[in-house]
Amino acid sequence: MTTSVRRLVLSVAMIALACFIAIPLYYILVNTFKTQGDMVAAPLSPPTQLFLGNYQEVLSDPRIYRSFLNTFLVTAAAVVLQLLVGALAAFAMVVRTTTLNRVIGAVLLLGFIVPGQSTLIPLYRTLVGFQLVDTLPGLVIMYLGGSIFCYFLIQGYMRTLPYEIIEAGRLDGAGSFQIFWRLVLPLIKPILVTVGVFQTMWVWNDFLLPTVMISTPEKRTVVLQVYNAVSEFTTDWPMFMTVSVVALVPMVVFFVLTQRHIVNGLLAGGVKG
């Protein structure tokens, strides 16, 4: 076989396989444009006419916007705080390698191994005591555990910066915080972006913590909203599909904008969101 023929065969085989893998995605997308009757008649065929009623109904429901806002607020607060706590700790650790700090660093690593499930029940009870259960700030607090992970990846990157930067800052009379904020943070932007992307995907998509913590409908995150839509639209499948598709849009857009960083992250850190 010549190279070009082999390439063609590979091409056809790989595209066919990928299309098979993508059937579920096609299935939900195509059915959002159908009426219920259309879907039952032929679930896999393209819509006979472009029916936009499902989207009109989903997008006219204020609850979906509310849940987007909730998820956005929680994700933004949680990820920014995680990165800040992680970067501050990394700075302290990297600038001063005393034995004490090395011990602290080793102990912090243990926070890495402990799965969220193991601390969930006691934390839940503590937050009940502080009346933070069923609140968005309570949810953000739960996500702060992710700062330890941020710390670890950030300090690895920070160690590669030249010490002269800090020295120069000191000579110019900058305090530690100024050095951190003005000099170090801009320089570690690549790792902040990479880690931030992974943490965003985790927090935005998380189901475990919202389902445990949130019970008021107005405080639902997007994933929780979709989960509850199932019982609401038991028989109206196209409506459920439409809610799902609408819920997926921000994450897909986010992915398209950040996929370069995801591949970087896979290489640099081996992280899974």
Partner: peptide, 23 residues
């Protein structure tokens, strides 16, 4: 300098050490 570590230590103690001990 050590104050920079404080937030991480607080997170670690309250989100890991205490709940694990409680568990």
């Amino acid at each position: 300098n050590q104050a920079f570590l404080l937030p991480a230590i607080v997170v670690f103690v309250f989100l890991f050490v205490v709940p694990l001990a409680q568990s």
